[in-house]
């Protein structure tokens, strides 16, 4: 029951439910859910549908918990960066203490429930992912090395492996390949973002590649990593993950991704500023589509194979 006589807190500090949802980084969660779902569906062992739903919810919850803990730890720099100023903590809607408690509570709950629903191997992997994202990436790497995104990208790459492990109880070559695809995709995705958010990372003293090695070097790095990603995508054709849809998708997606990466490389800062980083923004948006489309192709192939249509 609400105490109407209680002192009126400042309105900005009274969070709405949607502010707590925002704390869990729902857009990142969408990516986590989708890739975990693909990992689970592509696995050779089928989980009971209800347990599969519970597993996906647990992985999403774990991802959300990591997001909340990340916002808790990074509140000081989120306040400085334009891109993150409207997040629930810097905007004064959710307190640091609330974010920390929600993060830790959801971490524990998601890991325990995943263990009970599927197996403790998958649960341990989810726990390690949250630990990696918070302790290794957020606390350690993010503020200390320009390799932050390269190594830290592993955290975002684990969900399909967790999905696969939830179904099979093991790690396999195919699940490692799915991990590797997201791992290689992460650096060019975030470096493109760093290019068009311009001074954000510099102002916050986050040693992104744009800050430590310059913007020209970042453009070169985008091309190199996009090329490595394309090579990995091509190599995946030889695995059991690939069917006709994956093969067609990876060829088309990688050609388009590489063309845009080269366009970023050939541009200079003046040209980019003239059109407000149009190519960089387009590359960033396309990178999101790229990952969804690639994993959708894996899902489609595994579904058609399961239905006996091919494979």
């Amino acid at each position: 029951m609400t105490d109407a006589s209680a002192p009126l807190p400042a309105l900005e500090s009274e969070a709405e439910f949607k502010d707590f949802i925002a704390l869990l980084k729902p857009r990142v969660m969408l990516l986590v859910v989708f890739t975990a779902f693909v990992g689970l569906m592509a696995a050779p062992v089928q989980l009971h549908p209800f347990l599969a739903i519970v597993a996906i919810i647990c992985i999403a919850m774990g991802g959300g918990a990591a997001g909340a803990l990340n916002m808790w730890w990074d509140a000081d720099i989120d306040k400085i960066m334009k891109r993150t100023q409207k997040r629930p903590i810097p905007s004064g809607k959710v307190s640091l203490e609330e974010a920390k408690m929600i993060g830790f509570a959801l971490s524990g709950l998601s890991v325990m429930m995943l263990g009970l629903a599927t197996n403790f191997y998958a649960a341990a992997m989810l726990a390690f992912t949250i630990f990696f994202y918070i302790a290794i990436y957020t606390v350690w790497l993010k503020r200390s090395t320009p390799q932050n995104i390269v190594i830290g990208g592993a955290a975002g790459a684990f969900p399909p492996m967790i999905g696969w492990a939830a179904a099979t109880g093991t790690v396999s070559f195919e699940s490692v390949l799915m991990f590797a695809l997201i791992f290689m995709w992460t650096p060019p995705h975030f470096w493109a973002l760093a290019l068009f958010t311009r001074m954000d990372y510099e102002n916050a003293e986050v040693p992104m590649l744009t800050v430590t090695h310059g913007r020209k070097s970042t453009r070169k790095h985008i091309v190199v990593y996009t090329f490595l990603l394309a090579a990995l995508g091509g190599a995946t054709i030889l695995s059991k993950l690939a069917g006709p849809i994956y093969i067609a998708s990876t060829i088309l997606l990688n050609i388009r991704f590489l063309i845009d990466a080269f366009r970023i490389w050939f541009r200079d800062e003046k040209e980019s500023e003239r059109d407000s980083f149009l190519v960089e923004r387009r590359f960033f948006k396309f990178s999101l589509f790229y990952l969804f489309a690639l994993f959708a192709a894996i899902l489609a192939d595994s579904t058609l194979s399961r239905l006996g249509i091919w494979g």
């Binding site: 609400t2 009126l8 807190p9 309105l11 969070a15 709405e16 439910f17 707590f20």
Partner: peptide
Amino acid sequence: IHKRRFGRNVG
């Protein structure tokens, strides 16, 4: 403030 708390409680 009641509307906000109501929303939170329902959620």
